[in-house]
Amino acid sequence: MNLEWNLWAIKGVQKEQRQYSFSHSVPFEEYNRLLGEQGFVVREVVALDEQSIMTIANKENP
């Protein structure tokens, strides 16, 4: 629940209002896109269960 997420704060950690979201983080798909732009090849996205996704990426050769 977004309200509960906002009832507490951690010193030095910036959270967004949406539950489980933090400042400076981008959505999963955007992060994977940025990996591709910054020297990685996203080779697989694995659904581990209903809530869990794993990105597997390889560092590109320089």
Binding site: Y20, L48, Q51, S52, I53, M54, T55, I56, A57, K59
Partner: peptide, 13 residues
């Protein structure tokens, strides 16, 4: 290889 997850469990490897 890099892998990761988050509470909505995003894992990056």
């Amino acid at each position: 290889v890099f892998s990761s997850t988050s509470r909505e469990m995003k894992t990056f490897l």
